[in-house]
């Protein structure tokens, strides 16, 4: 068990280092801060209402749609392209350790991006009186949602040696999950409630209301578990072809 953790952490550190060495991290963090900041400011001053619900419920999920697959697309695809995957999987490490290590690195980057946006609600708390429960729940929900997206992105990165294809495939899967609860009106109610449960947005709305319900948390954890499992399978795919 300790070696599993140690190896996972070794991979995490390596990936974090290469995020920050390659400027990917800086570009992504800056862009993220800039875009969220812009939406935040325009909400605050133009409409003149300090409403975080929009930022949590609509804007950041939308940004994540592009942002998350951009973080993950390189993680496995690049190793397949350059052949380093062969060195990696012939080391005495488990495929799970490789996947978890890479996943954790991407999660840390995402959490850092979210943490940096704390400045905005802080401004609101000076100007007005934000809903603290909603704030905590909103951040928690966004982190969970981002974590699920990252698992999806990591999986699609394992499908191909081509980063662009990894990005697009990841984007499409996330987009479908994102859109589900926005198109349920056209379905009969029995199907609609299933679709709603499967959609990402529905659970995020619950959390953003400040209600941390174990069913919502479970939903995200199942998504994460499923796609990380699939990501491990992509590493093993060399064995069944």
């Amino acid at each position: 068990m300790t070696t599993v953790l140690a190896n996972t952490w070794t991979f995490t550190l390596k990936e974090l280092r290469s995020f920050f060495n390659s400027a990917v991290a800086y570009v992504i963090l800056t862009l993220f801060l800039f875009i969220t900041g812009w939406f935040f400011a325009s909400n605050l001053f133009l409409v003149n209402q300090a409403d975080l619900r929009d930022i949590f419920g609509a804007i950041i999920p939308l940004i994540f749609l592009f942002f998350v697959p951009a973080i993950t697309m390189r993680l496995i695809a690049e190793e397949k392209k350059t052949g380093t995957i062969e060195l990696l999987v012939t080391l005495p490490v488990r495929d799970v350790e490789i996947v978890l290590g890479k996943y954790l690195a991407s999660l840390i980057l995402l959490a850092a991006a979210l943490a940096l946006t704390f400045a905005y609600p802080l401004t609101i708390s000076i100007l007005g009186d934000p809903d603290t429960g909603g704030l905590v729940g909103g951040y928690f929900g966004l982190l969970l949602m981002g974590a699920a997206y990252l698992a999806i992105g990591l999986f699609t990165s394992g499908l191909t040696p081509n980063q662009i294809i990894a990005f697009i495939t990841g984007f499409v899967i996330i987009f479908v999950l994102y859109m589900l609860d926005k198109i349920i009106m056209v379905f009969p109610s029995a199907i609609a409630s299933v679709l709603e449960y499967v959609s990402v947005g529905y659970h995020l709305d619950n959390l953003a209301r400040g209600v941390i319900d174990s069913r919502d948390v479970l939903y995200y954890f199942s998504l994460i578990g499923l796609f990380l499992f699939l990501a491990v399978r992509t590493l093993e795919s060399r064995k069944w072809r």
Binding site: K14, R17, N21, T82, G83, L87, T90, L91, P92
Partner: peptide, 19 residues
Amino acid sequence: EVRRKIGYLPENTPLYTDM
């Protein structure tokens, strides 16, 4: 166990260029 015993240089020497 087997992987522990082996040292391997794959064809084309793939390496992490950013390390």
